[in-house]
Nucleic acid binder design. Sequence first.
DNA 1: ATGGTTGCTTAGCAA
Length: 256
Amino acid sequence: MKIATWNVNSIRARQERLLAWLDRARPDVLCLQELKVVDEAFPAEELLEAGYHCAVHGQKTYNGVAILSRKKPSDIRRGIDDEGDDPQARLISARIADIIVISAYVPNGQEVGSEKYAYKLDWLERLTGHLRKNFSPEDRVLLCGDFNVALDDKDVARPADWSDSVLCDETTRAAVGRIADWGLVDVFREFHPDGGQYSWWDYRMLGFQKNNGLRIDHIFASRPMAQLCSEAEIDRQERKGKKPSDHAPVVAVFDD
DNA sequence: ATGGTTGCTTAGCAA
């Protein structure tokens, strides 16, 4: 099974590239983030024509997540499963065959110490609670998405430039570390221990041209799934050309 | 300290 995660930064702005990429990469499952549309405006018909079912949790203007799959998904759930009343659409999960797939868009946090930063940390704790409440580390779970954090400085092209950024913040790294400690493996890291590969480049300051990137998009697999992982790559090509997203897709392959 | 760009929405916010 080939699964990918991609922050498309608006599904409407990226629709053509998305369809072209699906045709080229042919993943079985694709987790999307930053749809920036309400459910009704999501191009579900076009994607169904392309061979993909869609589980969508949309929102006007901001956020929005989805899971596309060749097989029909079941048990679709939207939002974090707790008492929190979160107006931001940042999580959706579905069962595809016998695998739990979660598409997550972790808050950016803007600036360390800000209100949005506090929301980011709180959201990550809630995500940990969501996993503990609903799953066991022995289940077949794939948690994919834009985590808005590079877990190690070797995943940052110019660490000195980003040392004060929310994308490299140690408290955030520790919060994601606790999610991993529950029983999840960063599968890209397993295949690329040296770093130096990135999934996001700022539109500003010629970020991509200068390769001033960070690896902030991740595929986390529970151990039973991680054992089956045979490949993990970042499709850097997709960041090139006309009207790219600022993120490239991250792709992993699991034995059946 | 701020800038630069993109997208949604239409001047300003979020990233």
